[in-house]
Design a protein around this nucleic acid. Structure first.
Lengths: 256, 256
DNA sequence: TTGCGGATTTGATGCCGGTCAATCGCGGGT
DNA sequence: ACCCGCGATTGACCGGCATCAAATCCGCAA
């Protein structure tokens, strides 16, 4: 069975180095990264950008359970996932965990720390993972010189905002679960993987926290989806058998 | 009894006109506006900004129930509330309304439309209201030349993002309601009004939709808060009698 | 002032999903 | 291969909030 999350690793090993501006031969990973446009601005021989050459650096590998940054850390950079999978989570004042999001290769973590300039959450690797770290001051500066980068940043932030708004409605467990699965599939597809076969990198408890449900409800809902033939599920390996039925179920939570 | 929302109107009538760059005599309203820094960049005699003189224009007055913009409209501008109060709402694919937010004088609407460049919601005046409209392309351009404006924009967007994340947790009706009241008070205070005495400009149904509760639950919760001495409520006129108790109740939903 | 319609409050009832608890299954380490 | 332990599943039960319904309040206009 396909294991999408793991297929990324070999590719990521030959990812772009800022010191080696191998423009044309940028690896597959970078082509699908959400920050590729900012990245492309670096190392393409624009003299006025030379102070920004150190905009990006590589981080990792991290092991499952490691934190990339912690709640309360000063915000100095955003992170693009190069390989692996990550969750962000908040500990509330009573110590309860709330998962804010999951991030796949090519996606960007940390944008919600712009205000108030410190991270509102921990970022925890769900499996072995690597990252590209982008200094945010440097990126802001780049944005003032390259309107395309500024536009891209606005876009990335706005995207997260829209997603959050949807999740804050009052929806049933079925709607949330269906939308979650379809959204994951769509995001895998956007990064070049299968939209219907992938591995859930996170525990049932993480999913539950993200969707504001109990872990038992997640489990029950998935079991029912399976008995209805909507999905095939063995452990964390998932196949969406009827993605359009699921999409219809979650339509109010999905953009478009 | 103090009626904060209405006290804004007389002030707003002498608000800044772009055609009359009366720098020093900017009225009280502009001093507390969330976009004042961007506004201040305009009309302060910086020659290189001359093409941006038309960045801002006045809109209104609108009547209660009027829409400032509609779901699906192309995103070309953001709007600062000059007077009155506004809600933004989304109609889902089944036609059910979901209130996304309420906006007081000095606050900014429309930032969540940056991506995908169209408004995800209607903006509806809750009472008579006036606005300042800021062309977003012009403001983006200004941001590339004035890093302070760019920073401010990032900050405003990030602020909304943080607020959304909180509301998407699973909290009880009491927590949501208490946090809602305290947040409103804090926001009035930030704009120079009383933090403990104000008028609820929106219906119970609007509050319910915003907090993902039923209107009856909102009513019952408020009644209980009243019987516990936490608030005094007559119709839509509200006094927070024990703001710190309320703040403690809603602590997990409130920033800081 | 009176009368109307919508908003709000209050009550009765039911359901979805949370909680508690027991069992099962799988993966890792020895 | 065999445990061991945590994650996942399944069942039983319960509670908070939605829903349905009815009464009351309030603003507005004639």
């Amino acid at each position: 069975m396909s294991v999408a999350l793991q297929e990324v690793r070999p590719v990521a090993k030959r990812a772009l180095r800022t010191e080696a501006p191998a423009a044309v031969s940028a690896p597959d990973f970078c082509r699908t990264c959400a920050l590729s446009s900012a990245c492309a601005m670096v190392g393409y021989g624009l003299p006025e950008l030379s102070p920004l050459y150190r905009l990006m650096e590589h981080l990792g590998p991290y092991r499952a359970g490691d934190a990339v940054f912690h709640q309360g850390d000063v915000f100095e950079a955003v992170y693009a996932v190069r390989s692996g999978a990550v969750k962000t989570r908040q500990l509330d004042k009573d110590g309860h965990e709330h998962v804010l999001g999951f991030y796949l290769p090519g996606e960007v973590i940390g944008l919600d720390a712009i205000y108030p300039a410190q991270f509102p959450c921990d970022a925890i690797a769900l499996e072995d993972a690597q990252f590209c770290r982008f200094s945010f001051p440097a990126m802001s500066l780049l944005a003032t010189r390259q309107p395309a980068v500024q536009k891209h940043l606005f876009r990335l932030i706005g995207q997260r905002l829209g997603m959050r708004q949807l999740l804050s409605g009052d929806y049933s467990a079925d709607e949330r679960m269906a939308a979650f699965l379809v959204d994951l599939g769509d995001r895998y597809a956007a990064r070049g993987f299968s939209a219907t076969q992938f591995r859930l990198g996170m525990s049932r408890g993480d999913i539950a926290s993200y969707l504001c449900l109990a872990a038992e409800t997640v489990s029950r809902t998935l079991s029912r989806f399976r008995s209805q033939g909507l999905i095939v599920l063995r452990g964390r390996a998932l196949v969406l058998q009827q993605p359009e039925t699921l999409r219809a179920l979650g339509k109010n939570l999905l953009a478009d």
